[in-house]
Nucleic acid binder design. Structure first.
Lengths: 362, 362
DNA sequence: ACGGCGTATGGCAGCGCTAACATCATGGTA
DNA sequence: TACCATGATGTTAGCGCTGCCATACGCCGT
């Protein structure tokens, strides 16, 4: 082939000039790039880029050709390169304690509902309630340069807080309130919510409340709820013992609820209203009551926390506290969008409140 | 200011030479880069890179200094740049129908459990059972150049299949079996599973089975389960009408289960075993039976699908089909790891099976 | 006829990192 | 002593894309 001949001749004359293939290419195999599309459409790479990102600036005629070329070549833009060049990743990082906990799944759903139409993608990581893991996760996620961060909780390690503050990325802390947020805040007061349901129990005439939950290390919201109970009881029930049953680090499931009921009956048989830190526990306990023939609420009243769907279907239906899971996600999404579009530079602290849902079980 | 004066003079003499700051920097504000760390530690950038990625190749002495510099400068690696240069993103994309569905959350948990220790991060997207959305999601995710893809289901649009095939990325389809996978496959036969529980009902002596589920468009696994029921009944119950109650596009929740029970009692009062497409429906129906005083299984037997935790706590406990949710995730994770490390180039088709769990409700 | 303006496109450089290769000091071996 | 294998570090040249600016062209008003 004549072209080969030319190349060889050249390399004899000027050995400094690389022979084709002397240095191995670093390109990934078979990947269509923006340049390929540009060549195919006979326009500059810049025009292809514009056709994708700001089609308004490209003439109808050119746009047609570029689109056809993209389709024909099967081009898929490399967002890592785009991210690097434009310094925007079009991603939002979401850090939650557990994927399988439905409350957080609801919030993520709300978050995605707002962000996806604006072209943002969600990076999800779960900490399993371990602060050390949270820090690791924050570090790893920051490496991907998200345009926004959604994180459950207001209590983080000093390092985590520092990392987030220094990152200059809009951060939304969710699910609780605090006086000193990293940036913005969307949630409700776990403390007030528990207080409200203790007051409810008091008004209904119950006299011997017991609180039951798991005190997983790292679950600061659960801890806040327990503390709030311990604070409210002496005020509302003067002279009454403050009874708390704790399953330790157990997972949040129906089985744990059952065990918590068991322990309560053994340790505090005088209990007339058993207040759970989660509807899941309450449901497990309620079903166990059905099995054992304990009449709810006559023998023992039960309350939950979270207003999960099952509460409306249990027999008897469950008295609980409704919490705006989904709304936490949508509000957070809207706040983030405003910040990321530079529509607003303001941080916000949104208290979405809660409500006591009185049903049959108490 | 004198520096301004100099700049002007220079531009008069040699306008082609850029005055400092004439072209605006594109760097993101205040970001510490690998070069900054290198300068701080007085080593080359490459050595810093090695210190992070392959510390074995760096001397103890240098490593110490680099680590100190990283800490002091607060350096956070830019993974977009790393990704671009190395052609590895260290991410796996997971595409599931719904985040809030616990079965998929379990699988994701399993997947993460395997991938996270190996340094891979999970990108999660939900399709809401819409094939068009699935395609969009696949396209967007491919743009991030994941090293592996986990996708629920074996039925995809032609475009989706084509995109995934052409991407050359290891793909695992999950939750069902097929003769023609895109790449690898981890799941169980929804068809056989339903058949097994119909056989179970037959052996237990039930004579008038009815199937109840929602037939959401896009949920091919639900459709397969229904079809399997329609296939099994004529064989096992010759002469018996094939009764199917369908809630249309309702969401999978307890309320729908209740409505399905309602409809069944109206349309097919002869039913002696009601077989649900999900434990969630079964639980909703079972609770409604309790409320109405319908005795289970004496007046009506009930079966579910999925072996959710609640089934073990309902009164009566729920007969169902156990399905290896978590294991689907872990096995998929292991297969992906092997492919991504180039330990194995082989595709695999893994049938994890299922098992009928006989409890009190049937 | 001319400069000024808006629209469409192209050229250049660089985002922050790493693969590939080059270099340089060791130490052991023939 | 010359030689090469080994380990530690440096140099070069991109990865694929977009920000910024330059350029080309037609249109308008004066």
């Amino acid at each position: 082939m004549s072209s080969d001949g030319v190349a060889v001749a050249e390399s004899l004359i000027a050995p400094a000039v690389e022979a084709p293939g002397a240095r191995q290419s670093r390109r990934s195999t078979n990947t269509v790039t923006l340049d390929d599309v540009a060549r195919h459409a006979q326009v500059s790479p810049q025009t292809v880029s514009r056709s994708i990102r700001t089609p308004d600036l490209v003439s109808e005629f050119t746009l047609e050709r570029v689109r056809a070329s993209i389709a024909e070549t099967g081009y898929v833009p490399n967002l890592a390169a785009s991210n690097l060049a434009s310094n925007r990743s079009m991603t939002v990082a979401a850090i939650i304690p557990a994927i399988s906990a439905s409350v957080f799944a609801d919030a993520l759903h709300g978050l995605e509902e707002i962000l996806a139409p604006a072209g943002y993608q969600l990076f999800i990581g779960s900490t399993s309630y371990r602060p050390a893991h949270e820090e690791e996760l924050v570090r790893a996620f920051l490496g991907r340069r998200p345009d926004g961060i959604f994180i459950v909780g207001t209590e983080h390690s000093a390092n985590t807080t520092h990392l987030l503050r220094e990152s200059k990325v809009p951060v939304i802390e969710a699910w609780d309130l605090t006086d000193d947020p990293i940036d913005s805040l969307v949630g409700f007061s776990n403390r007030d919510a528990i207080r409200a349901i203790v007051e409810f129990a008091h008004e209904r005439g119950y006299r011997h409340p017991t609180f039951a939950g798991s005190l997983q290390r790292g679950d600061f919201r659960a801890a806040a709820r327990r503390a709030s109970f311990e604070e409210a009881v002496p005020e509302l029930f003067p002279g009454e013992t403050v009874r708390v049953v704790d399953s330790g680090t157990s997972t949040v499931d129906y089985e744990t609820g059952r065990r918590l009921l068991d322990e309560t009956l053994k340790l505090h048989p005088e209990t007339d209203v058993l207040m759970f830190a989660s509807d899941v526990f309450a449901a497990g306990a309620l079903l166990e009551c059905t099995r054992r023939g304990i009449r709810v609420p006559d023998d023992l009243a039960i309350t939950g926390f979270g207003d999960f769907e099952i509460g409306r279907h249990l027999v008897p239906t469950l008295t609980t506290v409704a919490v705006p899971n989904r709304q936490i996600g949508t509000v957070a999404g809207e706040l983030l969008l405003a910040r990321m579009n530079h529509t607003s530079a303001e941080t916000a602290e949104v208290d979405l409140g809660f409500s006591v849902v009185a049903r049959e079980s108490a």
